[in-house]
Design a protein around this nucleic acid. Structure first.
Lengths: 333, 333
DNA sequence: CTGTTAGCGCCTTCAG
DNA sequence: CTGAAGGCGCTAACAG
């Protein structure tokens, strides 16, 4: 293995000079620089990042914790990686399997200087447990969290639900169905707030809370069919679930299926293939912001975050869109 | 930051002794060990992996290059990461965007000792370019490749296509449609071999080659509809494409859509939601084998690879299954 | 502008 | 069984 010492010997200079041309720091005479560069290629020098990182005590690596299924998160991860890449950072993926113990191990990596910063897709531990780790390095998450120490590029679901409901009311709907996630997340609490507000204003609702991530769509459809009076439109919290819901509904009762309109969240390939009207949460910008927050903290800079722009992808499952109700949205198609 | 020196001081021993208990190497008296362990927790010692890796000149990190869209590869990545984790390895994801230059940079990481091994989902450079890098560390891929230096846990598509075609012939089909990927991959060449063999035995075929990864399903459906005589069954190389094909077909001609049977590859959430009969390529085992190959090479051991077990997930889009034609398959549902 | 020097934290001979 | 010493490759003061 060649080291800067070999290069120095070849070029007839000192190690420091070689280091200076390598890192582009400090002054170095043009001619010496050329000599060194020539020597570098002559001896086939390969920088040892292990040594460099050790010396600089930095990894230029961000940890990224997923919690089980990344089926539909590919897009987010991909964008995050690309942004990181553009800032010369690497991304290591860890799988916590929603196990608090495992998650803590990864949190420890921040202490152990194995990573510079950490992104947690969905947490397994309480925020109180996670928060203290932020002193070892910046932490960001996709979960909405009220903390000054942990960043989240969340979209407030209150406004999403409020806008959709306002639209529905304008179109004369007085009875609306919801399939909600049981996760004790801020997003679902916000959604509930928006729903409650409309209920107070006379909206009749049917709500189905998904207990787990499995069979959600199916059981919600079964429950829906048991209703004596059924809402004409159902707002479902994720494409995947909406897909399952529609599939099961069609299987069990084609007539009802044809009469039921559906709106969902994610605008993924699933809503595209199943022609479901779905809200696009601007994942790309979210991923960008998440990384940039970490980057800013690591490098004591403050690059601006981008504004998240929601879009409503209008498809067959629901078409009565009143543009006025979506001031911040961009309706597509 | 606490170092082994702090621990040594506290325990009243030398750095070497601390190192020995930390790494569990060499002899160390029980009592001294206890003293050291006590000191470790007392001073709150945190090992510096940066230093350790530098000293050991290893990263315990495997690079994982994706080439653009990991929408449907989540499952594979996830499994790969979990296996790696169980062997105390980490996985860094890189995105090559199918750019040969970028890919080369990641290949260089192997040289630079930034990673111990490399997995390439789909390559951007020719294998001849990639192969030489294997001297810096083990390389594996998901692409089928004929090389002794690069491993691939591929499933020979010849057998898949042969088995499906044999089944179709047993069921009396004399005319079969195919939507194939244009990628100059071994898999598609093998598929073609299997198809040609049946053509030689009198099978009539319609073939559509997808040029790019976009609009594939749509254009194949349009092309299909222009046929004066249409095959009753179409075999499509991926769920995503099959979904698009069916969607477009239904949009343009419901009658034809209802008469057309579809089989595809992947058995992903898409085929589940769209009720497409699909072949499960046992991704989990493939991911396991890919990692274990790398692990074996890195650690000069030879843990056995697992046998890949294909499954046919039978759904509404195609039901005429003759079990005898799938000796190696497991038919589900 | 360049060379000398002194570590970073850890592991591993080599003596004792 | 334990301690002393050296060095992995690189960078950053500090002199010159």
């Amino acid at each position: 293995m060649t080291t800067i010492f070999d290069v120095a010997k070849k070029a007839g200079v000192s190690k420091s000079t070689v280091s200076r041309v390598l890192t582009n720091k400090g002054y170095v005479n043009k001619k010496t620089r050329q000599k060194v560069e020539k020597a570098i290629s002559e001896v086939g020098y390969i920088p040892n990042y292990l040594a460099r990182n050790f010396r600089n005590s930095q990894t230029r690596t961000i940890g990224f914790i997923i919690n089980g299924s990344i089926k539909l998160l590919g897009e987010f991860i991909e964008k995050f990686i690309k942004v990181a890449e553009s800032f010369a950072y690497e991304v290591v993926i860890y799988s916590s399997d929603s196990d608090p113990v495992k998650e803590k191990q990864y949190l420890d990596l921040l202490k152990y200087k194995q990573i510079d910063g950490l992104f947690i897709l969905t947490r397994a531990n309480d925020w109180q447990v996670i928060e203290p780790y932020s002193k070892y390095g910046p932490i960001a998450t996709w979960h909405r969290v009220e903390s000054t120490k942990i960043y989240s590029a969340y979209v407030d679901h209150y406004y999403i639900y409020a806008a959709i409901l306002q639209n529905l009311r304008k179109n004369g709907h007085k009875y609306v169905g919801f399939v909600l996630n049981s996760a004790r997340s801020q997003n679902m609490l916000s959604a509930n707030d928006a729903i409650k507000k409309q209920e107070a204003m006379g909206l009749k609702t049917w709500k189905y809370i998904c207990a787990t991530q499995e069979n959600y769509g199916e059981s919600s459809a079964q429950s829906f069919l048991k209703l004596s009076e059924k809402p004409k439109v159902v707002f479902i919290y994720a494409d995947y679930v909406a897909g399952m819901f529609m599939k099961k509904l069609r299987e069990l009762d084609e007539t009802v299926a044809n009469q039921t309109q559906v709106i969902s969240l994610d605008n993924s390939i699933i809503s595209e293939l199943l022609d479901i009207t779905s809200i696009d949460l601007d994942i790309d910008t979210q991923a960008y912001n998440e990384f940039v927050y970490i980057y800013n903290n690591l490098n004591a800079v403050s690059l601006p975050l981008k504004k998240i722009r929601l879009k409503l992808a209008v498809r067959k499952s629901f078409t009565q869109i009143d543009p006025e109700c979506f001031p911040e949205y961009r309706i597509i198609k």
